[in-house]
Amino acid sequence: MPDLDPEDEKIIILARSTRARTQAAEGAAVRDLDGRTYAAATVDLPSLRLTALQAAVAAAVSSGAEGLEAAAVVTEAAAVQEGSVQAVRDLAPGAPILRTDLSGAVQEIMR
């Protein structure tokens, strides 16, 4: 993978930290157009289920973000779930989505 922008490295670190802290299946982080970051983990409640990336996008939107520059998801999965991709694309059609393994090594960049 190519060298990452330091701001992209930051959201990967935030996503990894969130996942590790909560022991969730996934961790995610997004950066909005103002450079603010939002991190979240998988939500798996009886009445509410969100992927980590959906939760991070929801946090950004609920804080007034009008777009995203980039998103990162830390997962053991071989692909980012479609619902996660759609949540990012709803807010930012062209934002890169970085999929990393649990160590933070980038496995894929979706554009």
Rank of each mutant, 00 (worst) to 15 (best):
A39W: 01
I12E: 01
R36Y: 00
M1H: 12
M1V: 06
A28N: 09
L98T: 02
A65I: 02
V57P: 07
L45Y: 01
L45M: 15
A95M: 03
L68F: 04
G64Y: 03
L98F: 08
A20S: 11
L68H: 04
D101R: 07
A95Q: 01
A72V: 08
A79C: 00
D3T: 09
V61Y: 02
L98W: 02
A56V: 05
I11D: 05
L48S: 14
G35I: 09
A24G: 02
D3R: 11
S84E: 10
A40S: 13
V61D: 09
L48C: 12
V73M: 07
T42N: 07
V80I: 13
T51Y: 07
A78Y: 00
D32I: 00
L14S: 03
A24D: 09
L98G: 01
A71N: 10
E9I: 00
L48G: 05
A70E: 03
A72M: 09
S62L: 09
P96Y: 13
A71L: 03
S63Y: 01
R49P: 00
D34H: 13
T37D: 08
R36H: 04
E26A: 01
R111V: 06
A70G: 06
A65Q: 05
T37A: 07
D32C: 04
V73A: 04
P93T: 02
P2S: 13
D8C: 11
E69S: 02
A52H: 03
V80M: 10
Q23Y: 00
G104N: 12
T42D: 11
L33S: 08
L68A: 05
L4Q: 05
A70M: 12
R31E: 06
D101P: 03
A87C: 10
E7T: 04
Q81H: 11
S47G: 10
L4C: 06
I13N: 11
P93S: 12
K10N: 13
